[in-house]
Design a protein around this nucleic acid. Structure first.
Length: 450
RNA sequence: UCCGCAGUAGCUCAGCUGGUUAGAGCAUCUGACUGUUAAUCAGAGGGUCCGGGGUUCAAGUCCCUGCUGCGGAGCCA
């Protein structure tokens, strides 16, 4: 028996059905009546099409049903597909029948403007709006690009656990939960440590899933639950790592350009800016970046003991904040990788630069147009004793890291990897103002509903 | 956590130096119209002015306090 759904026709395929009678299933996005005409904008998840009903052409009962329709009522509309130059999608439907499935009453989100708080409280409905719909479709394409890129380049997907017994980078930012008789478990901040283990088994791996940070960050680039893809590669050094990061980001952007023109147009995105995202990207060392900041008079706000703020030259050794990153990126139209950060501001597992012991072989990729950091990565410390010394220096619980130290005892090799933040990447590509718009149900410091 | 801003109709907002019965647009409902795209035109209904306390002859408006939300910083992807 052939499943019923195989005969469904969707709005995005209508141009292949011109002249045919089809049944569309969807929701009323908007309705206007003008005399004997009723215009119904129907959305079905794949797109939106205007359905035109001319009252003298149908039975009175059908005209009445059409007149009854309200915003977001669910309905089946039967009609003939017609090419129509005036329509945004190039086609319209001449309505022959209207079958109401459910009439919706007082749908809260109107085509007019709304405030952020109101929209966030109705996030489950807001997702139906044109702009949110376009963003979610781009998000799906970004995920597909990531998977295609790695799957097509010899990587194996090896997902890491969500429950972990220890922190990856300090304990202040972990969500804690009870774990039976074993004490506390924590929601993972990163799958990286596990990816290092699977990379030693499979060579090139990537882990892709949600990660959690209990940071009380309240900005337009932070979520407490966000998705991260983390490749990890045996035998890669920092340069290999940076090359791979460039290849990935170029691939993602070019894939979205190839598949999502309609969505980018709906979002009002300046496509010419994305077209410039081609290898090679810019690269500079942390030290060069500090020199640039000071040469261009970008100061650092520093609080004094008495509480007042003064502006000082940017000191070598300090980590960059959003203002510094933004200033650095004003000179570039494509992403820039900053590498070799001071070891003090970076995580314990990063390998020291053999040529300069003050810095580690780390790299961050900053996206242009004020989008900020989308990638953080490094070559990992592969020497057992050096790693143990770093663990002790950071006062991390040695026992919890025994298995991780094992990786440096049994066939240790140079290896490297990075993490790409999915939401930050989608925010940059879509041009969304706030990260809460690029994940269906954002989890933020002051919001967990819906 | 710190700094700043806001809360008035279903939504977005206006409301002056405290002074009559708190306003507009949209949305909703009724009517007109064969091409609307945020339609237009005519009419109707719609209020715990965030909660609590205070000052005053009089508070949406001033003061104190609480709650909620927004923007930014730090930290980070």
């Amino acid at each position: 028996m052939v499943s019923r759904y195989k005969s469904f026709v969707y709005v995005e395929d209508l141009s292949r059905h011109i002249g045919e009678q089809v049944t569309l299933r969807g929701w009323v996005y908007d309705k206007t009546a003008k005399g004997k005409l009723v215009f119904i904008k129907l959305r079905d998840g794949s797109g939106t099409v205007q359905c035109v009903l001319f009252k003298p052409n149908v039975d009175e009962a059908i005209a009445e049903a059409a007149a009854q329709l309200t915003q977001e009522s669910s309905v089946e509309i039967i009609g003939t597909v017609r090419a129509e130059e005036r329509a945004p999608g190039g086609v319209e439907l001449d309505v022959q029948d209207v079958r109401i499935h459910q009439l919706s009453a007082n749908y809260p989100i109107t085509p007019k403007e709304h405030g952020v708080e109101f929209l966030m409280e109705h996030r489950h409905l807001w997702l139906r709006s044109t702009r949110q719909h376009a963003i979610m479709r781009v998000r799906a394409q970004v995920v597909k690009a990531i998977r295609d890129f790695f799957d097509g380049n010899g990587f194996k997907l090896q997902d890491s656990p969500i429950f972990t017994p220890n922190a990856c980078e300090g304990t202040s930012t972990l969500f804690e939960t009870d774990y039976f008789d074993l004490g506390k478990a924590y929601l993972t901040q990163s799958g990286q440590l596990y990816a290092e283990a699977t990379a030693m088994a499979l060579g090139r791996v990537y882990t892709f899933g949600p990660t959690f940070r209990a940071e009380k960050s309240k900005t337009r680039r932070h979520l407490t639950e966000f998705w991260m893809v983390e490749p990890e590669m045996a035998w890669f050094d920092l340069n290999d790592d940076m090359d791979l990061a460039e290849d990935l980001v170029e691939y993602i952007v070019q894939h979205v350009l190839a598949t999502s023109q309609r969505e980018l147009l709906a979002l009002g995105r300046d496509i010419s800016k994305l077209e410039k995202v081609r290898r090679p990207f810019h690269r500079m060392s942390y030290s060069e970046a500090v020199e640039w900041l000071n040469a261009n008079n970008v100061k650092l706000n520093r609080k004094q003991a008495d509480g007042t703020e003064i502006q000082v030259d940017f000191p070598w050794g300090e980590d960059f904040g959003a203002p510094q990153e933004e200033a650095l990126m004003t000179q570039f139209e494509k992403p820039c990788i900053i590498h070799r950060y001071p070891s003090e501001v970076k995580a314990f597992y990063m390998k020291r630069d053999p040529e300069d012991s003050r810095v580690v072989l780390a790299m961050d990729m900053l996206a242009p147009e004020g989008a900020g950091e989308i990638i953080g990565g490094s070559q990992r410390e592969d020497d057992h004793d050096a790693l143990l010394a770093r663990l002790r220096h950071e006062q991390l619980p040695e026992e919890a890291f025994q298995w991780y130290l094992d990786l440096r005892k049994f066939g240790s090799v140079p290896h490297a990897g990075f993490g790409l933040g999915l939401e930050r990447t989608v925010k940059w590509i879509t041009g969304a103002e706030h990260i809460r718009e690029v994940i269906p149900f954002p989890r933020m410091i002051y919001r967990i509903v819906p």
